[in-house]
Nucleic acid binder design. Structure first.
Lengths: 217, 217
DNA sequence: ACTTCCGATCCTTGA
DNA sequence: TCAAGGATCGGAAGT
């Protein structure tokens, strides 16, 4: 019997959200395990300490106008270390209800001071998919590393050498060729002193220092 | 009513953005003081250590597809404490270009793992207003002060090292980290023999030969 | 970002 | 002991 040890993704759903379509959509993911329960605040517990508050666009604007929003979020932050505010719909369609200044102020306050990230979703399906991704990322990480460099060259040796050297800070195609020529190859550059790097054409002391910091270690 | 000496709000603008309409709009705020300068990464310095990267909706999707986005943000995080990604326009209009999974993954990764908040703006006027709010909040926000530490985040060196090493053929994130760890840095790798390269974890004779060809020369 | 695909690497087997 | 096989990992390319 092939024991399937697929890692599960646990998502806590508040009983108030239990009747919405979201849990049913979440259950479609085979690795999702839903845990219903009464929560004091917030809607979806996406990882320990990470709560998602789902708000319809109209609700968001309304609760902003009547002053419920910030106290409610403050309460959540007291209970959970991280709060994510997910806004379903389109704020733009409710802009006539609220001044631009108030909206900008709220967005700015939430993201830079309160550290509550805002996420927009188009509809319920979008919301479910986002909640699943949050839970997956927080509970199991990405599962791989993001490559820093992409679309690598295919060509000759010198092409590759130039590409590698271009990875150094402050070095583009021109300086890369100059450096390779000056040092007669890649090897010399990566064992050169700061002074001799600075002697290469087009390289000043500041760039030389940065390059040296990376090659030397 | 006594005169109130308004505190100024300083905003750093990268020279590439200097020609856009944003600086002109920012200058309409009487308390804003704009400081032009060349920045290595990012567009608007909204407080010490807080950089805003402005991206058009189409750019966001395009740079996501060809893999430029995350390296760019990673390098920004190596230079600044906090990065804010401001997306101008509507992502929804470009959804046909990219899979929903990828888009959700990107949004989730940015907000919960990379800790890069996403902000959406409708147009350039919106962008300017949001940038002003960020600067205002961060510089004189709600009583308490932002620590003016401008020091680079730790880990910027290793990010650059990994960036350079990933430029080698057959080397992605995993092998890059393995190589740097195995050789204790970049210098050792670039002066290593083919045999000792092959001794690194995950590197076989094929890959070792290709790496050696470039470093040796 | 995700997904799919493919080649290289590594590990186990069995002669 | 080592060659051949297959399972796994990791990078490359494409949506």
């Amino acid at each position: 019997m092939p024991e399937q040890l697929a890692k599960t993704v646990k998502i806590g759903v508040d009983s108030r959200e239990a009747t919405s379509r979201i849990p049913e959509m979440l259950r479609r993911y085979p690795d999702v395990e839903i845990d219903y329960g009464q929560m004091e605040s917030g809607d979806f517990l996406v990882a320990p300490g990470h709560i998602v508050e789902r708000k319809a666009d109209s609700d968001f604007v309304a609760s902003l106008l009547d002053g419920r929003l910030f106290p409610q979020l403050a309460l959540m932050k007291a209970e959970h270390q991280d709060v994510i505010l997910l806004i379903e719909g389109s704020i733009h369609s409710h802009r006539s209800m609220i001044s631009d200044e108030a909206l900008h102020g709220a967005m700015s306050y939430l993201t830079v001071l309160a550290k509550v990230p805002l996420i927009y979703s188009r509809d319920a399906a979008d919301t479910a998919a986002l909640i699943y991704r949050f839970a997956l990322h927080l509970q199991h990480g990405l599962g791989y590393e993001i490559p820093l460099r992409t679309q690598k060259p295919k060509g000759s040796l010198s092409t590759w050498q130039q590409y590698v050297v271009e990875g150094l800070p402050g070095v583009g195609p021109g300086r890369a060729q100059g450096l390779i020529k000056h040092f007669g190859g890649v090897k010399g550059l990566f064992s050169a002193s700061e002074a001799s790097i600075s002697a290469a054409p087009g390289i000043g002391p500041k760039t030389a220092a940065k390059i040296f910091e990376i090659t030397q270690s």
